[in-house]
Write a protein that binds this DNA or RNA. Structure first.
Lengths: 329, 329
DNA sequence: CTGTTAGCGCCTTCAG
DNA sequence: CTGAAGGCGCTAACAG
């Protein structure tokens, strides 16, 4: 392995000079800079990140912590979008991302988590899907040992940023568009998790619209589960005129139930996953650009790692109507 | 940060002794081992992977290289399964995995790829979806600079293992089961990619069955594209009795085309992705356990990294009939 | 603007 | 079985 020392010798300069041009220090003359660069390419020198990290105490490593149901049979589209968005941006930013799943750290207490991430030399965390029940993880974030970006969860402090769409507004808007031109007065709203951060906001948005339009909303908790939404639809849809769900997956569950029941009710979703396109029916939904959210999260983490202060970031959303042809490729 | 030196002091032993118990060296007395371990827990010592890697020249880092279509709107289920399977097993094996996408390295030549992975201190590669067109990547593997495990692609050598199901057999079997009890004589077979490793094997399996049963098979290339399969079905299905596809996504495309054409033809897929469950129709398919394949790949890589020699691994597959309820969660 | 010199935290011979 | 000492490749003061 050719090292910085070889480059220095080849270029006829000191070892530290090479380091300086490598790290784009300001005070190096163009002349020596060129000599060094020539030597670098001549020798095919590759800087050793490990050594650099050890010496500088900056590893540039971050963990993307995601909640995927390991044995779920449904498609994990959202985590995948997060991964794609984050990794691509991370490469651009020169930071390393390792992906970690909730299940891998679920059993750990705070100390163990800290130890785990520290042993991995991780400086930053991007957490997707933190819920109120993830107490250890929350404590980990609050420990301040790592810079963190929380997707869809609150908790801004000096070392922590939060990134999310305006869930309340989005739910309000999509439901409004969905109901536009209709005279429905009896809606079934299938909500997310009880005590879930985004679920509560979405519910508020729904209620605000209901007040405004003077419609009656029956709220039931679907726990973001397709099956649960299916059951709730079976139970309540007959006496309702339309169904609004706090996620696309639940919307699909609702729709399938309606097909089984052989009745028609319009259904509204939330997320904009491509799976909707396979569900066999056009549906209104909010579209979140998960890749973009993750990419933005990486940028934000990068900023934090360079000493920036935590902040609250609100991403834009769109309203769309998804149909089969949208997902053909 | 508490270091090995502090532990040594606390335990009243030499720094190297601590290192030895950390790395489970044989020649340390139980007595000192206990002293050291006590000191470790007392101080909450966390070994520094970076320093260890620099010193030992073993990083224990691997890259999972995957082909995901960044802007594809269909669900990237297979890569996600690979990621889940690989990462979970990697944690168990104590190796670090960073995920890399083909798009991130597509433009690079071999030298650049080598440099990229070396600068990341990566020792091993797990590559999913290597095709005959990925010349640089193939050269990278053949360079012998990294230990590699190829999923669904051939190329075993000293540093390289290959892992895959028996595609020929699987295609033969699923098609046989699918046609069992029918008297169809005119089949449309929508194949994968021309010159694709797995595509060719599957086609051979299909042809073998066709010979055996004396049926006539019209082969068309669907390139694993749902849209292409849809088009081909539109074009040829009317004059055929059944459709067999070399992937589930193409099977879905075929099925949607049949619905549009308003004719019925049974469709057979290959893979066992959960998306099939949303397609609105029961379908025969091969089921590959992608998580398990990836997990096995990590084990194999781990073996290679410890000096083992490359080998060819054939994973088992199942035949299933997938239907909507299978994917409810 | 350039070179010298200590480490970073750990591993690994090599003596004892 | 244990300890001392010399790096691994690089960064970061500090001199010059």
């Amino acid at each position: 392995m050719v090292s910085i020392r070889d480059v220095a010798k080849e270029a006829g300069v000191a070892i530290s000079t090479v380091s300086k041009v490598l790290n784009h220090y300001p005070n190096v003359s163009n002349e020596t800079k060129e000599k060094v660069n020539a030597a670098i390419t001549a020798l095919g020198f590759v800087p050793n990140t490990i050594a650099s990290a050890l010496s500088s105490k900056k590893t540039g490593r971050a963990a993307l912590v995601l909640d995927v149901n390991r044995h779920a049979q449904t498609v994990d589209e959202i985590p995948m979008q997060y991964i794609i968005g984050a990794i691509n941006k991370a490469k651009e930013k020169g930071i390393d991302i390792i992906t970690v799943f909730f299940t891998m750290i679920a059993e750990m207490n705070v100390e163990e988590m800290i130890r785990y991430f520290q042993s991995q030399s991780i400086e930053g965390l991007i957490i997707g899907g933190l819920s109120k029940e993830d107490i250890s993880l929350r404590k980990l974030v609050e420990s301040g040992k790592f810079k963190s970006v929380l997707i869809d969860a609150p908790g801004v402090d000096e070392n922590t940023s939060s990134i999310h769409i305006d869930n309340e507004k989005a739910q309000y808007e999509v439901a409004k568009k969905f109901l536009n031109g209709t005279a429905y007065k009896k809606i079934l709203y299938i909500s997310g998790k009880k005590n879930g951060y985004v679920s509560e906001e979405r519910l508020i948005g729904m209620n605000r619209l209901a007040d405004e339009l003077g419609i009656q909303v029956l709220v039931r908790t679907g726990s973001f589960s397709e099956l649960e939404a299916r059951k709730l639809t079976m139970q309540y849809a007959a006496s309702r005129e339309a169904i609004i769900c706090a996620s696309d997956l639940m919307a699909i569950g609702a729709m399938k139930a309606l097909i089984d029941m052989d009745i028609y009710r319009p259904v509204c979703g939330f997320d904009g996953v491509s799976l909707m396109g396979y569900a066999g029916k056009q549906m209104h939904t909010v579209r979140q650009d998960f890749q973009n959210i993750a990419a933005r999260a990486v940028e934000e983490l990068s900023r934090l790692m360079e000493g920036g202060c935590g902040q609250d970031l609100v991403m834009p959303h769109k309203l769309i109507r998804i149909k089969y042809l949208d997902v053909l490729s």
